[in-house]
């Protein structure tokens, strides 16, 4: 299947997931957005040789995924697709930083490998938490939350428009891409010149569409200001959710629980 159709299905699936009705989905989007942000900052604030202390942070996405009934493998695959950049940058660490930091029996592990693993763990956590956020909140609600939290309205509206028309334009673009594919042979017809025309046409159509949308807005009294009749309600649940998770993150940041637990167990055994 072509890339564009995959992207379309992907967006559609994320959108469907966000439409579920679970306790996590019902929470005010602001609480989830804020908590996710705190989560990411705490994770990223760990030192570069830290691995074990970060592990407890997997609890947050795990809990959100199960309460939100989100498909684990699907989200994990999505993370893997985007990992290459972090991998590419991170993989230099073992090459450059060869000092031995740790010995387990006969194996010695260099600082570079540890910091590389730390990058990968952080990547999975941060990328995962964002996907979880969107899958259990929905893009439109995140935009509303952004606006309520002080983002300029025009920017929020802009995001909403963008999201709304992605669905329309991807279908349009994939029709054009299919039409091109059906008449391209041996790689001919897929070069840059045809690509330029294709995009140029799509762009002109898009601009015409924007004009029609503008007209439709004018017809219904648009005066430069977009108004939305929607209230977000944050109650006790949201406060507890945000405070409890943040407290948990900070506690995990301060105390290396795995290390404490691990020493306890190894002491018992040895």
């Amino acid at each position: 299947m072509s890339r564009i159709q995959t992207a379309f299905l992907d967006l559609g699936l994320m959108d469907t997931l966000s439409g579920k009705d679970t306790p996590v989905h019902r929470l005010d989007p602001r609480a989830k957005l804020l908590t996710t942000l705190i989560f990411i900052i705490t994770v990223v604030s760990f030192g570069k040789y830290e691995i074990s202390a970060i592990i407890p942070f997997f609890i947050f996405p795990a809990v959100m995924m199960s309460l939100g009934e989100l498909p684990f493998y699907y989200l994990f695959r999505k993370i893997l697709i985007v990992i290459p950049f972090a991998f590419m940058i991170g993989i230099f660490n073992p090459l450059i930083d060869r000092e031995i930091l740790m010995r387990i029996g006969l194996f010695s592990i260099s600082g570079g490998w540890i910091s590389f693993c730390s990058i990968m763990v952080k990547f999975i956590l941060t990328a995962g938490s964002v996907l979880v956020l969107i899958a259990c909140t929905g893009f439109n609600s995140v935009c509303m939350a952004l606006e309520k939290m002080g983002a300029p309205r025009i920017f929020a509206v802009q995001l909403l428009f963008l999201y709304r028309y992605i669905f329309v334009l991807i279908v349009e673009a994939s029709r054009m891409a299919n039409a091109r594919a059906l008449r391209s042979f041996d790689g001919k017809g897929k070069g840059m010149k045809v690509f330029g025309y294709l995009l140029g046409h799509l762009l002109l159509r898009t601009i015409d569409r924007a004009q029609r949308i503008y007209l439709a807005m004018l017809c219904r009294g648009f005066d430069g200001e977009i108004r939305v009749n929607r209230h977000l309600e944050a109650g006790m649940r949201e406060v507890i959710f945000t405070v409890a998770w943040s407290a948990f993150f900070i506690a995990m940041r301060v105390y290396n629980i795995p290390l404490i637990a691990g020493s306890f167990i190894t002491e018992l055994i040895l």
Partner: peptide, 26 residues
């Protein structure tokens, strides 16, 4: 120019959609 409000969103969607179409680098 109020038309920029829908125009920005739709052209943003265009950028997004266009990134899904590839071309072969000679």
């Amino acid at each position: 120019d109020d038309i920029k409000i829908p125009l920005m969103g739709v052209v943003g969607a265009f950028i997004f959609a266009s990134q899904m179409i590839n071309f072969t680098i000679p």
